[in-house]
């Protein structure tokens, strides 16, 4: 059996970032199915509606209507969603922000890179890690990475 197609969600209010993310993802070898959301509210509504559980959610922190942190908290407190790995995708490099998201259940923290190549590498690494955590008997409780 070859690799499955990964279901990936991204919530980011910045159109350019969404576009860049999509472009970077499409340049990678891993086959993915990316759904984009303009804010946290849209994302949460989708999560509640859909039946297919995504393999990974990318969350920007600073978003209108519902920010990334609120989404994270909601996901972690929902029985159906709590197992989904969440990667925070933010500009903030504040240690406080980073620690806070991890404590609240984020698995991966990505500082938005300022270079397209870096962005691709970052997404690649996240997907790899996520893959390993799905396939290699790694303890998901300790699924914590900062990229």
């Amino acid at each position: 059996m070859s690799l499955k197609i990964l279901n990936i969600l991204l919530a980011d209010d910045d159109e350019d970032d969404r576009w860049l993310f999509q472009k970077a993802l499409s340049d990678l070898k891993i086959k993915t199915n990316l759904s984009l959301f303009k804010n946290g509210k849209e994302l949460m509504e989708h999560l509640i509606r859909t039946e297919t559980t995504p393999h990974l959610i990318f969350l920007d922190l600073n978003m209108p209507l519902k920010n990334g942190m609120e989404c994270l908290t909601e996901i972690r407190s929902s029985c159906n969603l709590k197992a989904i790995p969440v990667a925070i995708y933010s500009t903030s490099s504040s240690e406080k922000d980073i620690e806070n998201t991890f404590v609240n259940g984020a698995n991966i923290y990505i500082n938005k890179p300022s270079n397209f190549a870096d962005l691709k590498n970052a997404i690649d690494k996240v997907l790899q890690l996520n893959w390993q955590y799905h396939t290699s008997n790694l303890n998901k409780d300790n699924f914590l990475f900062r990229i």
Partner: peptide, 21 residues
């Protein structure tokens, strides 16, 4: 400085990198 200033700057850099790539 950390967010609002960096955001556009980061995008400038991002597109520069895209351009040169």
């Amino acid at each position: 400085a950390s967010h609002d200033l960096q955001e556009p700057l980061r995008k400038i850099q991002m597109f520069i990198s895209l351009l040169s790539e």
